[in-house]
């Protein structure tokens, strides 16, 4: 282990360190801006204070947006994880000539600009009059479309080196297809599912472009509420909301990696 680390050239370590700083610096700025004592969202902060954190916690708009986004991301993650895992299994094992095209089709939602996808869905929901325009199910469908490719990608990656003979061996020893899948396949691809799950949650929670057209009246998700706040007030409440969003994503990542680790779930 020590040998492997020392084999990494110094220049790569420096570049990696720089990349890490670039990635983490905005988070530090958001946190400090949220603790700003001044009236506007500025950096560096004009002193430190909890006034905007309190403002966030007492704001009915921000709080409801926060929990609404959480609920939406949770539902989208659950559906995407199931659908994405099934799709990845099919794509990895299918010998059909169309599977390549299908893989491209499944990835389309993240290739398309979010605004285009949101508008396209809005127009589709409106013109077909199927009652999904600006409803929770309509918004959820959109989030599932956007998050599913991440699950498919990570689960497909975990299936690349998967030895199908392991599952066949279980079957030959009398295991049913479901038992063989549950005790062999699922355990092996669990890290991929877990990673996809985390990606799905983060992407859904922070989704803005598609939501712009499909947001539900009386229920705006957190990114929308933050944008609106910045647009009209430019107060640090949005940054304070960012602190709670970051905290939620970090906690969700930890919890998801623990709970969705199917090795643990199916250990018995």
């Amino acid at each position: 282990m020590m040998r492997e680390e020392s084999a990494i050239p110094l220049v790569f370590k420096v570049i990696a360190g720089f990349a890490l700083v670039v990635l983490l610096l905005p988070l530090v700025i958001v946190v400090l801006a949220g603790l700003n004592a001044g009236d506007y969202l500025t950096f560096p902060p004009q002193g430190l204070s909890l006034r905007w954190v309190k403002s966030f916690l007492s704001s009915p708009v921000f709080l409801s947006a926060y929990f609404y986004s959480f609920l939406l991301a949770l539902c989208a993650t659950l559906i995407s994880t199931v659908v994405g895992t099934l799709a990845a299994l099919y794509l990895a094992r299918s010998s059909s000539k169309t599977s390549g095209a299908m893989r491209g089709f499944f990835m389309l939602p993240i290739v398309l600009p979010g605004v285009v996808l949101g508008l396209a869905l809005y127009v589709f929901f409106t013109t077909t009059d199927i009652g999904l325009a600006r409803t929770f199910p309509g918004l959820l469908i959109c989030h599932v479309l956007v998050t599913c490719p991440f699950v498919i990608a990570t689960v497909t990656a975990s299936l690349v080196g998967f030895d199908i003979s392991l599952e066949e061996a279980a079957r030959s020893l009398g295991a049913s297809p479901w038992t063989a899948f549950r005790k062999i396949t699922l355990r092996i691809i669990a890290p991929g599912i877990s990673a996809g799950c985390i990606f799905a949650f983060i992407v859904s929670f922070g989704q803005f472009e598609t939501t712009l057209f499909l947001a539900v009246p009386n229920h705006e998700p957190l990114p929308m509420a933050m944008y609106i706040s910045l647009r009209y007030k430019f107060e640090p409440t949005a940054a304070a909301a960012g602190i709670f969003a970051i905290a939620l994503v970090v906690i969700s990542t930890i919890v998801t990696s623990r709970l969705v680790s199917l090795r643990r779930v199916f250990k018995a």
Binding site: P60, R134, A215, P217, E220, M224, K233
Partner: peptide
């Protein structure tokens, strides 16, 4: 949306919903 919506709800819409027995679907996006 935002603070504007909060004030509208408080000063106008909540009472309007009661007075007119209706629901207001407020869109701010």
């Amino acid at each position: 949306g935002g603070f504007w919506q909060e004030i509208m709800r408080k000063e106008l819409l909540d009472q309007f919903e009661k007075d007119f027995n209706c629901k207001i679907a407020y869109e701010s996006s």
